[in-house]
Amino acid sequence: MTKDFRHVTEIDRLLHEPSRLVIVTILYTVESADFLFLQRETGLTKGNLSTHLAKLEAAGYVDIEKTFRGKVPLTICLLTEVGREAFKVYRNHLKRVVDSMPE
């Protein structure tokens, strides 16, 4: 593979999936958000969102804290330092890939 296209292979595939990219972008913008907010903003079903969050948590990109607001269970999600760095790297790689594409 030529040097110009090496950036394509360097793209983080975990973040490259649109739903996960949206989740990580939201969490990158805020300090933390709960499951309900993420569900509303992403438009994903509970099951889909749980699956994507579990993958991001397994990669160490997202921390999930389960607490209670009164008697209501509350799932707080936040981006870890590893996740924040991974998002920055992903953004730079994607930018380089787009820049190297012909008009």
Partner: peptide
């Protein structure tokens, strides 16, 4: 917000 907003549309903490 904790009482009226977050239970309806979700909680967010800003940086």
């Amino acid at each position: 917000k904790n009482r009226l907003i977050y239970p309806r549309t979700g909680y967010v903490s800003y940086q």
